[in-house]
Design a protein around this nucleic acid. Sequence first.
DNA 1: ACTATATTTGTGTACGTACATAAAAACAAT
DNA 2: ATTGTTTTTATGTACGTACACAAATATAGT
Lengths: 354, 354
Amino acid sequence: MITIKDIAKEANVSEGTVDRVIHNRGGVAKKTAAKVQQILKHYNFKVNPVASALATKNKYFIVALMPEHNEQDLFWKSPFSGILKAEEDVKNLGIHIKIFTFNQHESNSYLNAYKKALESQPSAVIMVPNFFKETTEITNDLEKLKIPYLFLNIDISGFKNISFVGQDSYTAGYIAGKLMHFNSPKSSEFLIIQFKENIIRNNAVSNRVKGFNDYLIKNKLDSKTHILEIENINNDSARKEIINSYLKNNPKITGIFVPFSKIYLIADCLENQYLDKLELIGFDNTQQNIDCLLNDSVSFLISQKPFEQGYEAVRLLSDYLIKNKISTDKFYLPIDILIKENVKYNIRKDFITS
Amino acid sequence: MITIKDIAKEANVSEGTVDRVIHNRGGVAKKTAAKVQQILKHYNFKVNPVASALATKNKYFIVALMPEHNEQDLFWKSPFSGILKAEEDVKNLGIHIKIFTFNQHESNSYLNAYKKALESQPSAVIMVPNFFKETTEITNDLEKLKIPYLFLNIDISGFKNISFVGQDSYTAGYIAGKLMHFNSPKSSEFLIIQFKENIIRNNAVSNRVKGFNDYLIKNKLDSKTHILEIENINNDSARKEIINSYLKNNPKITGIFVPFSKIYLIADCLENQYLDKLELIGFDNTQQNIDCLLNDSVSFLISQKPFEQGYEAVRLLSDYLIKNKISTDKFYLPIDILIKENVKYNIRKDFITS
DNA sequence: ACTATATTTGTGTACGTACATAAAAACAAT
DNA sequence: ATTGTTTTTATGTACGTACACAAATATAGT
């Protein structure tokens, strides 16, 4: 492995000069710089990131802005763990991470988390752009400060984010459509559950629904979809009443598609007659949802691989910071189809080891 | 972050002594060692792997013994790539890897590859134990030399391997059974293709078949399975003749299960009438198999995540060598269900980046 | 008590890079 | 030519660990 010392010897300059050339620190005569550059290229020199990390202690600081998780909404726990796991891998390379969480139902909380995050003078930001308008403010600010940022999980366009890490929601919905039809008669009706708050700002949900419907259309299936909007999904009795009565009035429905992470709330309130008869397909492998798979109330879950989202986001940014590796492309994670039998192998056991 | 220097100061000894205690190099008075140990534990000291790697240049050498890949048998290309990718991640930690390939149809080739591998005095071995008897010889040898070894992809018991990285074949077959029944009428017949050579030594194949059949039994499905053994699967015309005539004589068959990686050979030789009618389910996302998914001749592929197998094997061994982290448990990778729509997101684009 | 020997502990240098500081060279102004 | 100023280049130390070697201490034998 070729070192700075080797390059310096070859170019008849000191190691310091080579260092300046490598990092464009300036203060090197044009002619000398050119010579060094040429030799660097000739030997395809790459700095040893291990030695570099050791020399520049704690150089980089990544902050992550993401929704908080709790008992009712476990989804965000996995990206959280994924980020922590990745930090284990990169911390000795001088990269440290701090996660700031916000309440995904309050835009103010989002802005406040950002403000706090900014105080730690981050070198880069991982963010879940949950609110459009506020995200515009934040990214404008970051661009002024020349702090690179990456979108996690929510893919919105018109921004100068380094990359996006998450899932292709449209295709995921399309696949849900296909799975729904596996077990269904040729002409059946399906119920799509919507949740007011989601419709407003989460384009992932609408893309999934679009994909789901497109599957029917493209395959010329003689099926019909119903959409049922629920005001307050956390009101148990109201939810139960609304759904079961809707199913009673529409007996042809053979399946329910829940394009967001809370299918367990639907499964839990279905009357037995419907539970046995209906095909349920939802998103995300939270513990509650997994339980529904295991007790046969839900047939399929589509995983967004949330752990991997967090993990890869950190790895991508680390490569960007350390190796200047740019990846403008979207980083789409696999669309995992989970059933009762394979779900246990999808759970990451190995986070926070060290 | 606490350092050796800190520990030394606290214990009133020199850094060298602490180093000796940490690495059990001996030559430390019992009393002193105990004191240092206690302080190490108290601060939960962990060596900085980055500094350690820098100080001990190229300390570890891992060799991998795996089948070679070629145009006809692409399966082993992915673990190969996965290992190379992982090497990128760990090479600056002083871990280097060399892959030795062998002809999976000749046990001598396996032994020869091992002999060559041994010459490089490896610190650990990743091996695909393709031949039972020869594996016994090899592992006996390795145990004498106190070289740890890990099994990749093929899970055989009765050995002292550090770990196994691969798939739960039985469950994968069970899932194949479930998928096969999604689209089939209640009482249908299925054809399982076997391949002489595989039967002999690859217990993964027989476990998959067992899982497949168990799905029928456990769910009390009124189905029947046929088993068709093919002598020389690479003889195009013979294969075509055998399969199509078998299907002609058994018109009730609605699906074909191919429990090894060459379903494309089956799909390619089916007459159109069968191609349209039959459900095909196979293993492994090789390019040829993926093409079959995309042209609708195959409905499902179950991926063994071969890239990840290679990657994780290296990571596991690295952790073992560097951090002394032991993992006797089997490392089962997810059982990915691949369909036309999600297959493209399962292809790793990012190997050998550097 | 005095070597001889074994045991235990301390010191210094290397790994490859980053960066601060010192030194040298180049240039300008008087 | 001398001094001052800027540009350019060289040197040295630190990061945290590993390990060779030196030094100090303990133990045994006479």
